[in-house]
Design a protein around this nucleic acid. Structure first.
Lengths: 227, 227
DNA sequence: CACGCGCTCAATGTATACACGAATGATCGC
DNA sequence: GCGATCATTCGTGTATACATTGAGCGCGTG
């Protein structure tokens, strides 16, 4: 695999997993040493991450962006516009097969959610597959690209509800309704069910999110921030 | 200005203006010679353009992407979701000043549209300023980023209606309605008026667009394609 | 004559050296 | 003692040389 690609994926997953918290400084030389490649692919990776909005160039190096409560609200505003539309398009499209499979797997969700960390990971795989299935059914490359962008940022926020079993069980039910609506070809229901789901997710995320990053004293990197 | 930035903006505007038509091959060395910089900033520019969806890497070099009729439909589908939402948010926000100014300028539109090329350019400046005002009023960085992406691609398509005065006069009226709705704080009307506007624009774009790129024989670059 | 193997070349991928600019700290003047 | 200015240094921006890969093509063989 290309070094630049590897650097990008490594850094991205470290940011998404919170290994690299908000405010962490990523300097080209440091990272090139750490990742064992030259500055060139690291530069490429940092540029891509900046385009994704996960990092931000500053005078003193590129830093991992923070996520404020206002950002969470804004992100969900956009998600609602995009995902409601995508679900509606998917419902009109009548591509049943993938959704039938996902419906079955979602049925297992409550059991998975009782199984601890491994089950949790598998649960999120189902949700991700649903997102992908909707994306594909919507058959709109521009919408798909926008969806991937919001899902990237959503993944960072997901850590907030990851260990909230009540919320996750409820979310699984909401997902099932969305799938059912798509299978029934009911675009309006699919769209509204998505709206409801995101509304509830947002409420939960805001309830769980820290009061907003404590003003980051330079140099501190205590991992206590949202990201 | 940084060489990479200059390379990016040069290439981007050339693609948007149709100077570099769909299918044009952009090789790093060629472009670095043409633009008078080394491969490094050219690579950066090409990567950014690829992230924008304006070019696409292939085995034989990076090529300018084509826009099919299906792409136009897909783009408008996304625009509708995004711009309708943005207009609704702007209406709720009650930031009147910029919209009052734009309303006045839109009033001049019919006169501008009778003035030939220069007036046309000024007309599109008003429309762009309206887009920016809505973006700013929506006060949502994620939505803003998505809007910039669709506006980028819309600018490529705009060339199709640029010399269709009837359509442009009608569009100016539609824009005025959107502005009025925002000024009235009527989110639903702002949203629906945007929907209507985009529906009519799409209809016009499809009527004006060529039947889809003639299968691009390799090497031909006759500029007859949509892009 | 058709198929497949391997060569070759051209384009991108990567590494590194050098240039430039901005932020910082020390020193000098006031 | 305080402030301004200049040197220093760290980090990114750019250029270029070298490595690698993959596509096209010619040759040999079945």
């Amino acid at each position: 695999m290309r070094a630049g690609e590897r650097a990008y994926e490594t850094l991205r997953s470290e940011i998404l997993d919170g290994v690299l918290g908000a405010g962490t400084v990523l300097q080209e030389v440091d990272q090139s040493v750490r990742l064992g490649v030259s500055r060139t692919p690291v530069r490429e990776a940092l540029r891509r991450l900046a385009a994704d909005g996960l990092v931000e160039p500053t005078a003193r190096g590129t830093i991992v962006t923070a996520i404020s409560r206002a950002d969470i609200v804004a992100l969900y505003e956009l998600r609602e516009a995009l995902e409601a539309r995508a679900a509606g398009l998917a419902a009109r499209r009548r591509a049943d097969a993938p959704f039938l499979a996902i419906r079955d797997r979602l049925h297992d969700a409550p059991r998975l959610l009782a199984e601890g960390e491994a089950g949790l990971t598998r649960y999120f795989e189902i949700v991700d597959d649903l997102d992908r299935a909707i994306d594909e059914a919507a058959a709109n490359p521009f919408l798909g690209s926008a969806l991937r962008s919001v899902q990237l940022h959503s993944a960072r926020i997901r850590r907030l509800s990851r260990h909230n079993p009540d919320r996750l069980r409820a979310a699984a039910g909401e997902h099932e309704l969305i799938v059912d609506a798509i299978l029934a070809g009911d675009a309006e229901l699919a769209s509204h069910a998505t709206h409801v789901h995101l509304h509830r997710s947002l409420t939960n995320a805001l309830a769980t999110a820290p009061d907003d990053e404590a003003a980051a004293s330079p140099g501190t990197d205590d991992g206590s921030r949202v990201a």
